[in-house]
């Protein structure tokens, strides 16, 4: 019996549509979120992540509706992130059908938010999303905000250690250097975070070819996440899973 490695498609949602750009710029339409979620469920996705990149409150309400519509149709776990600032925001998302939430900027601005969420809903509900890039900080990696455009002044490893102490259940590690480049995951960074993390690590950013996923798992990621390669049909989830399986990783069906 072994825990299967998870393959997670990520849907960046804005204004009711799935969008995708490079380094969060030049957004392209990638389809209807509910339809894509259904498709990925059928194709064997182990989990789904929605990142709400909407700018306005109105658009956020649309996202809540999409979360509900997706949760109605899909019987795999659903993580929702983007714009979560309060315990109440988490409550609303869980009620709409999310199983987990991910926090990023709001936790950087006010780290107590992590304690508040995990005390109320348990740490298994909380994913800390970390947009990291190489920099001259203590560990060599820093945390960025605004989709990698601004430095938060935090060292990535210190921040993750603080998050774990405060009660996160998982880390979504996004490489801002690799995001959208399709040049492969940042393996060194995954390794560095794996070494200090006692919670699961989801690797994100840079997936371009089928073998990239297994490379990330081989250096210690517990799950792998990608967006555009799945949305635009360049790689199928089943292809990733059969590659993983042939390399000796356990995967679900």
């Amino acid at each position: 019996m072994t825990l299967a490695k998870r393959v997670i498609p990520c849907l960046d949602v804005s204004g009711g549509r799935v969008v995708k750009g490079v380094n969060f710029l030049n957004l392209k339409d990638a389809g209807d979120p509910v339809e894509l979620a259904k498709k990925y469920d059928t194709e064997g996705a182990d989990e789904l992540t929605f990142l709400d990149i909407s700018a306005s409150i109105e658009e956020r309400k649309t996202t809540l509706d999409i979360v509900s519509a997706t949760a109605e149709q899909v019987f795999i776990p659903l993580t929702v992130g983007g714009g979560i600032r309060t315990v109440n925001d988490v409550d609303n998302l869980l009620r709409a059908g999310a199983d987990k939430v991910s926090v990023n900027t709001a936790a950087i601005n006010r780290p107590e938010l992590i304690n508040e969420i995990s005390d109320r809903f348990g740490n298994q509900v909380l994913v800390l999303s970390v947009d990291a890039r190489r920099a001259k900080t203590k560990s060599g990696y820093e945390v960025t905000t605004h989709g990698g455009r601004e430095s938060s002044g935090l060292d990535a490893i210190s921040w993750i250690q603080e998050g774990i102490k405060r009660g996160i259940g998982e880390i979504l590690l996004n490489s801002m250097d690799a995001d959208g480049t399709k040049a492969g995951f940042d393996l060194e960074m995954i390794k560095a975070i794996r070494e200090i993390s006692g919670v699961p690590v989801i690797a994100s950013g840079g997936a371009g070819k089928i073998s990239d996923f297994g490379d990330a798992l081989a250096v210690g990621a517990d799950a792998v996440l990608a967006a555009s390669v799945f949305h635009f049909g360049e790689i199928k989830i089943s292809q990733v899973k059969s590659d993983l399986s042939s390399r000796g990783f356990s995967v679900r069906g």
Binding site: M1, A4, N123, Q124, G198, V199, P200, D222, A223
Partner: peptide
Amino acid sequence: APVLPHIGWNNVS
């Protein structure tokens, strides 16, 4: 276990 929570798909005996 070295990594907790236990999150994901596991088979059952």
